[in-house]
């Protein structure tokens, strides 16, 4: 009987048998969808500027409008379809953050408003906020010392 295959040998076999993700096509799709979302953001910002809002306010309004739009699209079941097509193109913009808050909220509401919706709403956004805040504190400490 031939010798049994080792884990290392098997790992090589698996690599050979498993098709790679179509990186090039995925990147092109991500580029266009991500680019379009940002362009829409620019359009909203420019409109806010026309109404005489400051740059700071305009970019806040832009975020808010994009977040609400993505949340509604998630509720309608359309954002997951966009995500399947665009990959990172719809994950990386702020709309992806909004989707990652709304999707678990909808999915886990059957487990109740407190421990279902209430707790699970942060399964993806929680780590984002946690590590974002931790990094900002580190940045703040360095900035305080230097200034």
């Amino acid at each position: 009987m031939p010798k049994d295959i080792t884990k290392e040998q098997y790992s090589d076999m698996v690599k050979k048998a498993s098709p790679d993700s179509p990186v090039i096509t995925n990147c092109i799709k991500a580029f266009f969808v991500g680019g379009i979302i940002c362009t829409i953001g620019q359009l909203i910002t420019n409109c806010c500027r026309i109404f005489g809002l400051s740059m700071e306010q305009s970019s806040n309004y832009t975020s808010i409008i994009l977040v609400i739009t993505a949340s509604v699209l998630t509720g309608l079941g359309l954002y997951s379809k966009l995500g399947k097509f665009a990959g990172a193109g719809s994950i990386v913009p702020i709309t992806g953050f909004s989707n990652s808050v709304t999707a678990p909220a909808i999915e886990f509401k059957k487990e109740g408003f407190i421990l279902g919706l209430g707790a699970k709403i942060f399964i993806v956004a929680g780590p984002v906020i946690l590590y974002g805040v931790l990094t900002s504190i580190a940045v703040g400490i360095v900035y305080y010392i230097l200034s």
């Binding site: 998630t74 954002y79 997951s80 995500g83 990959g87 994950i91 992806g96 999707a103 886990f108």
Partner: peptide
């Protein structure tokens, strides 16, 4: 992941 999360 939840159904509505946009992943590939």
């Amino acid at each position: 992941f939840p159904m509505d999360l946009g992943t590939q």
